[in-house]
Nucleic acid binder design. Structure first.
Lengths: 336, 336
DNA sequence: ACGCCAAATGACAACGTTAACATTATCAAT
DNA sequence: ATTGATAATGTTAACGTTGTCATTTGGCGT
């Protein structure tokens, strides 16, 4: 406008108005403005009116950094997921965020991309923001990461799994048992040549272990495990790589559906119910899409959103049980 | 392990160690510790070693709140999406976050849930954290929201659309034109009774407008518009509601696939190429799943991740073009 | 032996807010 | 009239960093 020097930005070089800017305009001290924001009842209606007018006029937005410093409460929570571009984790983030945002908490989101080094880096980045709690999918991949979390002295929720030695709270399900359940189911259906497809992250591996051990305990010959590249777009696995297999457990629904596309191309997919399928396919996650395709996808249903909500509730209180097994459920549809 | 006084181990309410705690332990002043973190070259190697040891011993993690206050740079950016549990937006968040995290920025995530009031609330929550920029899907729903952003005086990127009067930067595509493209395509295929299904948020509405106007301009009788409840799980729309329709444009792939499930149930889905379909279906977004199902889904391909990356780049610089049209592409597959 | 410069370190006041007291005005009860 | 309670407001010192000056060393040229 007039005496502006060099900082030329779209609107004005106005750095955000402060408490005392509002105070000056309203002719009160800054603490009074602070009170109008936090404890309006302590301020005389007439004064309050003046202050509120000043706040509106200046477009005052409190600086949460300063608040956080002064009160040692940041009203933020750190969330670490392998990747957000994966419906199941996205559901979890939505769940926890729906629980937390109305309470005034900010969600600071970080992705590890299934990389241990990046996970540790993200963990300390997160911690440097002094969140009041951390919610993560899975458990820290390294000892360093775990130590970081323990020393932080804040509530920590590990999700999507049931770690043997949890840091603090847990909201998950038994991935090993999920594998066992699938193996038993397939055996009960009379299948006898198994394969597992999916990533090799800790949780997928736990599913594989359960699947593998249970299958063998039931007298099935050792299942094959096909580790899929994470960005193997489409993950359309040729059955060529799995000769003779008549039942496949996929680490998640996306892989399962990709695999079914491969089967379809090979003419190995029927529209009828499970017994007609040359190759049974079971997924995990219960994506909505699995219900909609034909043949509909049998899957281990896991409620990602509930995991998120539960984790949020766990970090909000120190009381009650800290380890919650949300369980899973085998949903038997047409694919196997 | 000997002379520890009160800081007892793992679980105590020990507030995080500060610069001066480290300083005391290393026998230097706190400013020196600060320099070891930020400007290690200014510190004598011997001193630096001592300080680094002290930092490790205490598990020092800098307090970014204090840093942010002192330097007026928070190294954080606010991200506002309607919902994260929607693959296309999740891709965008992943894209921008992959671009920003390596640079040390934290992503503060907020969801509006397509609710104008909640959007405004989230916007000011976000702003109160003093992010260095805001990236949002779409544009502020209210005047208040827009004003808030303008007054904040930070870079703002609006995405997934091309607003007529952008606040600052834009990374999106023309939703109206997408609707037009679909209408033209369907007419070219000889279809003549159109319907649109999807939400009634601004972007979906823009798609509808383009679709509707282009269809009518091409001599097609006024298309029907079916507004779907957002949480209409499955969104399996009975064709019963759309008698006589032979072509449907869905506001996104999820709706399209849900609708196709309805068609399948009604026996109106063929496995062959588009001309054989009794009802053509076109989606938007190009979910991977659309490629995998049978019949494969024709769709308007939009690169959500690229939108995120582009938005991130835009807010990182003041130079170069501020309005980027990432475009879209009609992918013709078997569904229509 | 002297002054000088660079390297290494430190003191102190911000940054915007809140907690913990401190002060003033108002007014009813003696 | 004085007291004391209550309501309304203000002062000051944190919170954990960093920017901007000091200040202290030690080495070097002459």
């Amino acid at each position: 406008m007039s005496g502006q020097m060099n900082i030329s930005s779209p609107e004005e070089p106005h750095s955000a108005p402060t408490l005392s800017a509002v105070a000056k305009l309203a002719g009160v001290s800054s603490i009074t403005v602070s009170r109008v924001v936090r404890l309006p009842d302590l301020v005389a209606p007439e004064t309050r009116g003046r202050v509120e007018a000043a706040m509106r006029e200046l477009g005052y937005v409190p600086n949460q950094l300063a608040v956080g410093l002064a009160r040692a409460r940041t009203r933020s929570i750190g969330v670490l997921v392998p990747t957000i571009a994966n419906s199941i984790f996205a559901d979890t983030v939505q769940g926890l965020s729906d629980e937390l945002e109305p309470l005034g908490y900010a969600v600071i989101l970080a992705q590890s991309r299934y990389d241990a080094a990046r996970e540790d880096y993200m963990l300390s980045t997160l911690l440097s923001r002094r969140p009041e709690a951390i919610i993560m999918v899975g458990s820290p991949a390294t000892e360093d990461g775990a130590r970081l979390l323990k020393r932080a002295g804040i509530p920590v929720a590990e999700t999507w799994d049931l770690p043997a030695t949890p840091i603090d709270a847990v909201a998950g399900f038994d991935n090993f048992e999920a594998g066992v359940t699938v193996a038993r189911h397939l055996v009960a259906q009379g299948r006898n040549s198994f394969a597992f497809i999916g990533g090799d992250d800790p949780r997928a591996t736990r599913r594989w272990n359960g699947f593998n051990e249970a299958a063998q305990a039931l007298g099935i010959k050792a299942p094959r495990r096909l580790v899929l590249d994470r960005n193997a777009s489409g993950s359309v696995v040729a059955l060529a790589e799995l000769p003779g297999v008549d039942a496949v457990f996929a680490a998640n629904d996306a892989h399962a559906i990709g695999f079914m596309a491969g089967l379809r191309k090979a003419g190995l997919l029927r529209n009828g119910p499970a017994p007609e399928q040359p190759v049974a396919v079971i997924g995990l996650g219960d994506l909505e899409m699995g219900r909609l395709i034909a043949p509909s996808l049998s899957t281990i249903r896991v409620n990602g959103e509930a995991i998120g909500r539960t984790a949020a509730k766990l970090i909000l209180t120190r009381e009650g049980p800290r380890h919650i097994d949300l369980g899973f459920e085998l949903v038997h549809r047409d694919s196997g």
